Computed example of a mutant assay.
Amino acid sequence: MRRMLVTLLLVPVLAYVALCAMLFLAQRKLVYLPDYTHVPRAGTDYALDRDDVTLRGWIVNPGRPAAIVYFGGNAEAVQANAGDFARWFPGHSVYLLAYRGYGASDGTPAASELLDDALAFFDDVQTRHPGKPVSAIGRSLGSGIAAHVAARRPVDRLVLVTPFDSLANVAQAHYPWLPVRWLMRERYPAVDALRDYPRPVLVLRAGRDEVIPGANTDALLRVLPRAGVVSIQAAGHNDLHASPAYGEAMAAFLR
């Protein structure tokens, strides 16, 4: 009887441990969703050579004096923004870079590499626009990457779309019964990067955001007390860009 009782107790414990191990090992496949973003290299017009890979993307409004770098979401085909960005930012060249493993970029996505790539991306764009302002937009996952860049480079103006305090905290909110904060390697701690951040910031949030809990955006805003905030109440996480207020707010902020 005692052995049976021990067995009955061990089975759920072992199943829980196995689930945690599976999530730890598979987390990059859960965080990064590049499969629907792949395009031929011939359709790109920007390339950034790294030590081990070539990253590719697009330039919108080439030849303008000022620049914007854009960091997309975890399943976003960033080139889909080209038409809107051309209209909203006529005085800027906008650079859309596909992450490693996305679009026509080589490699496999992982936080450490994506963050290093983002710094190199900013540096390359700044070299192309000497003495001119370079701003950054980061959406969802890209908000964590943009925060990392803004903390380490002279970003002129920073736009964060549906941002979070850290990806680990977002995952913990979705899976409160798992020790996610201990398991996550892909953390993107935006709240640490932007604590006491001095430059202009605009935050765009969705009133019906089903991916980033409001509490996680609120936690980030507590360290950005001077940030401008635009809440689009009728929008969800993935359709925020369809609201006219989305483009109007960014165009006014990045004018």
Rank of each mutant, 00 (worst) to 15 (best):
V125Q: 04
T108P: 00
G131P: 01
D117V: 08
L115W: 01
Q172N: 02
A47F: 00
P62H: 02
D52V: 11
G73L: 01
N74E: 07
D84F: 06
V53A: 13
S143T: 10
N61L: 04
A171G: 13
D116E: 11
Y102L: 06
W88A: 14
D106F: 02
S140Y: 10
V94T: 15
G107K: 12
V170G: 07
H92N: 13
P163N: 11
T162M: 03
G72L: 08
A67C: 08
Y175W: 13
V149K: 08
I137T: 07
L178Y: 12
A67V: 06
A118N: 01
A171H: 06
V155L: 03
N169A: 15
R50Q: 12
L167P: 04
G91V: 12
H92P: 02
R87I: 01
A75V: 03
F164D: 05
A75C: 00
N81F: 12
V161R: 00
A77F: 02
W88L: 14
N169H: 15
Y95F: 11
F85M: 13
S166H: 05
S93M: 05
V170H: 08
A104D: 11
A66E: 13
Q126D: 08
R87L: 14
D116M: 05
A118Y: 10
Q79K: 11
R56M: 01
T54A: 12
G63C: 12
R100Y: 01
G101C: 04
L119N: 05
D51P: 04
R56T: 10
R181Y: 11
L183K: 03
A151C: 11
A120R: 14
N61F: 03
G144D: 02
N61H: 04
A98F: 09
V149L: 10
N74T: 05
W88P: 00
L48S: 08
V78T: 09
V78D: 02
R181N: 14
F85C: 03
V53E: 14
K132C: 00
D123L: 02
A82P: 00
A47N: 05
P62I: 01
W182V: 04
P65Y: 05
T108M: 07
W58C: 00
V170Q: 11
S112H: 09
M184T: 15
D51A: 15
L115A: 00
G57C: 07
L48P: 08
R64W: 01
D45W: 06
T162E: 06
A168G: 11
A136M: 12
D52E: 15
G101S: 06
P133Q: 13
W58P: 00
P133D: 11
V155W: 09
Q126I: 00
T127E: 14
Y175K: 04
